[in-house]
Design a protein around this nucleic acid. Sequence first.
DNA 1: TTACTTTGTATATCGGACTTACTAAGATTT
DNA 2: AAATCTTAGTAAGTCCGATATACAAAGTAA
Lengths: 397, 397
Amino acid sequence: MRWNQHIVKVNNKSLVLHTIKQHAPLSRADIANKLGLTKGTVSTLVNELLEEKLCYETGPGESSGGRPPVMLLFNQTAGYSIGIDLGVNYILGVLTDLDGNIIDEKMINFNQLTYDETLSLIKETIHFLINSAPKSHYGVIGIGVGVPGIINKSGDILLAPNLGWKNINLQREIEVEFQLPTIIENEANAGAYGEKCFGAGKEIEDLIYISAGIGIGVGFILNDELYRGGNGFSGELGHMIIEIDGKQCSCGSKGCWELYASEKSILKEAEKYIDGECAISEKHHKLETLIDETKKSEHFVPVFEQAGYYLGIGINNIINTFNPKQIIIGNRLAMAKEWLEDPLKEVIENYTLKQHQTNLQITFAELSIYSAALGVSAYATENFLKTDVLKQQEGQN
Amino acid sequence: MRWNQHIVKVNNKSLVLHTIKQHAPLSRADIANKLGLTKGTVSTLVNELLEEKLCYETGPGESSGGRPPVMLLFNQTAGYSIGIDLGVNYILGVLTDLDGNIIDEKMINFNQLTYDETLSLIKETIHFLINSAPKSHYGVIGIGVGVPGIINKSGDILLAPNLGWKNINLQREIEVEFQLPTIIENEANAGAYGEKCFGAGKEIEDLIYISAGIGIGVGFILNDELYRGGNGFSGELGHMIIEIDGKQCSCGSKGCWELYASEKSILKEAEKYIDGECAISEKHHKLETLIDETKKSEHFVPVFEQAGYYLGIGINNIINTFNPKQIIIGNRLAMAKEWLEDPLKEVIENYTLKQHQTNLQITFAELSIYSAALGVSAYATENFLKTDVLKQQEGQN
DNA sequence: TTACTTTGTATATCGGACTTACTAAGATTT
DNA sequence: AAATCTTAGTAAGTCCGATATACAAAGTAA
């Protein structure tokens, strides 16, 4: 709201820290140059960051004709962050350093659990990861959880249909247990943030992440920031109508996108293709086995190609709406990239406005199954760095 | 990028000015309270604004038990702004004061003009409005133009299909002629901004404006700011596919929304309804006559109701994507609110995710045909106030 | 009349970026 | 090898704008 010197300092300090984090190794002079601050200002801010152990000096760098610079590095082991990706039938937990490098991870598969059972599995995962964290100045600095559902701004899970959850405050539950700042985020948003920070979307301002799993969710990064809708949730794009009077959806509507282009729809279509010649049957209910099978014989290729086509239809609509620089297709369907990619791109080429196709990249997730977990972990880290800088500041006043 | 006291001052001054603009009449003490600044700081900033003629003191206000306050008012007649809405077959120009009140206006209808002819009509309109501006301290402070097409960040019109324009730098053309800062903006964005500032969308953070005319465009206000896509344009949502393998569109795609729910589609459908009983024929090619006719007899009501249904389908997709607080339907189809509203809202009620329906308002444009013109005019004003405050500041250093 | 409130200004203080001058430590030139 | 030039980083003082404090102005309440 209002502005004063305090805000100036906090922001400049944050700028300096992020510059070190992104462009390390570099000298104080480099920072001053890059940000337009004076050498003196940078010096005092860097010295504070040194005291706070958020960066450290390494040996002298190469001289460029004068006194050699003292190079600075971001101290990514000043603390560790935990990211949990809660899927419909799995929990993936990662422990990362402040730079997002995975230190340890834990994957649990399950089927049809109650809320209490799921919650205790989550807690178990977090306990495991906390115990595996190396000694560090700040220890574990926060927890992020990605959930396939609608989350509001205060961290309540309003609805997670595929989990069967409704109005649950997972954040408080975890914060009470572990006494650590916790962030709950929609899984598609988390994936978008993950790819933005570490994956296919580095240095892109506007990107859109399509989380194609059991359902379809979409995460938006607009102007380098995660977009959230009016009530604090958006991107339930799986229920975009792509065919008037189409198939009946469980959401009450008809012709929803995710009835044509999700994991669910692929498994359903695959059943139709099972005939005498093919020896497999019930186990198609797993996407993984279907993919394995398709790598051996081409029997199910048309199923994937059709899904790719419908994915393209929905993505066309998204491009015409947002005109993003990049579209990233992630979550479980990214495993079938091999057969989805060509039909999908064909649809875009034929249907999408030509103006929107210039400078547009369509890629599959680089982080594979880690997009969401790394995303929430990075989110927790970001939150720590922001509030930490602030706290130090308040302490001095 | 970097932060310093200068930025602090500029921003605080801008905050004070906007507070006066919005909440006038109010005292220095009120401003200090509202913004959290000290009385002293507000005093100096207000005194500068007084010197710059951007606000002025009026008589004493009512005492609340102590010394009576000196009330401040925004000086909306310190200058005037021009907004031009360029349609496919009309030009609407408005001259407004700094508060967006219309002082004078000019409407020109035409049919199928070349670019040069259109340009000279635009210039004529602007000349007329400049001449009709009252004497003021700053005079005419800027020009805004809304165009039905794709605009990039530097004001080039990349494509305006319904005008038949391509790669045109209208901004330079106007700036050279009038020596005034000029802004070119997409017509749907302009409408969104207009409704946000003066119409149905006041004090709403996230709103979406549907410009339903010959085609369909969409403007987004997200977090109180106009959203623009990666290449500087977005919202060509008329070409969202709502029916797979649907009608062939001139854009090369099939099943595009605007084939089902635009002015064009309504006029086409209406032709089918012309039979022996009905005495009208060719003149249906004007939406206005069709509406007049429908007010008399119910003959064409089903045509509008069908369009309302399809409008609803597309709007459903938009809501599921953005979860906005408000949807505003504007441009020419807003004239047919009477018959569109019910079928449209029925679709939303039946199809849209329930979570997204809470706190959602769907309304028709309050400013009727003025949305876009007022929007760009306000945009030009906003631009002036920002740069003016900056300039004054730089002058002092 | 006296005490109390609220508005707005004046003055001094404080914090943080900026300016300028300096030291440090190497490269380049003579 | 000595002198000069370059670049990195520090130190002291200045400047600017918000803040804190005191106070004058102009009313109300008792």
